[in-house]
Design a binder for these strands. Structure first.
Ligand SMILES: [Mn+2]
Ligand SMILES: [Mn+2]
Ligand SMILES: [Zn+2]
Ligand SMILES: [Zn+2]
Lengths: 138, 138
DNA sequence: ACCCAGATTTAGACCTAGTCCAAATTCAGA
DNA sequence: TCTGAATTTGGACTAGGTCTAAATCTGGGT
């Protein structure tokens, strides 16, 4: 059982069967599923779950700060349960696999001269490249 | 007239009225328009231009490497004529203004240990913050 | 145990961004 | 000028996502 579920219970979130399976599906490392992928996997555990509920629940998890939305391409948003530690993404240009990479100390430091007077509050970095499998013609 | 148009002519691109106005609209610095914005502005210069042609032309410009697609949110892609010099983006979290910031020397250097064996070929950085206007309650 | 107001879920209509297609138009070269 | 290829066009279609109003579930009060 995920400690995501525990944290949610502690925060007084009403734990319904639907919310439970969505949280269940979003467990693990390097997990970056689209809403439809979440819906498909949740549906295996609770066949009657609706698409609307998946969207509702994902939206709530994002609002609670327990899940982050990631858009590494112009396609569907991906939902990422690794919201506790700041990190960036490494995306394979061929198979589209996504890996989490830890945020570095110097990230988000933009030289004063390049800031246009902005007060910078965050930074997202997407590295692109070929994953080991795709390099070896797999 | 833009030197974008000149480069395109040199490369043997058939210069139709439609392509000309699309290229015209994509002139300037810090330009990051959606396809629909391009269509609206192009339509002021050439009222009968169709949405399909705008999409076609933008796609061709991207394929030619003269324009890049930018997705700083999960919404519509934005088209950026600043394709000659590598740069990143600074996005206002309130008014969504986008500014170009020059790429730094150390960008895209990910510690060997964090690379998961990927062969990294590119990096995109999005800085988020409040622009000067939005800071001063404007 | 039973009730009920509020929370949650649901199907499906609706919306935005984008793609695709077949027919109409335009154009460059012979 | 003619002609085949390139280009443009309107509209149908798709993917991803939002919204709504009605149905269902829930837990605290009795
Ligand atoms: Mn991640
Ligand atoms: Mn730019
Ligand atoms: Zn790969
Ligand atoms: Zn602003």
């Amino acid at each position: 059982m995920s400690d995501l579920l525990e944290r949610l219970r502690d925060r007084g979130w009403r734990l319904t069967a639907q919310r439970r399976v969505v949280a269940e599906v979003l467990n693990g490392e390097h997990v970056h599923l689209t809403a439809d992928e979440v819906h498909a996997r949740a549906g295996r555990l609770l066949p009657e779950i609706s698409r609307a509920t998946v969207y509702n629940t994902l939206g709530e998890l994002v609002a609670l700060g327990e899940v982050i939305e990631v858009t590494t391409d112009g396609r569907a948003k991906r939902y990422d349960p690794n919201a506790r530690k700041a990190h960036h993404h490494l995306v394979c240009t061929r198979c589209l696999t996504i890996r989490d990479v830890p945020a570095g100390a110097g990230d988000g430091t933009l030289p004063e001269d390049d800031r246009f007077g902005f007060a910078i509050s965050g930074v997202e970095i997407t590295y692109r490249g070929l994953c080991p499998d795709c390099q070896s013609g797999a």
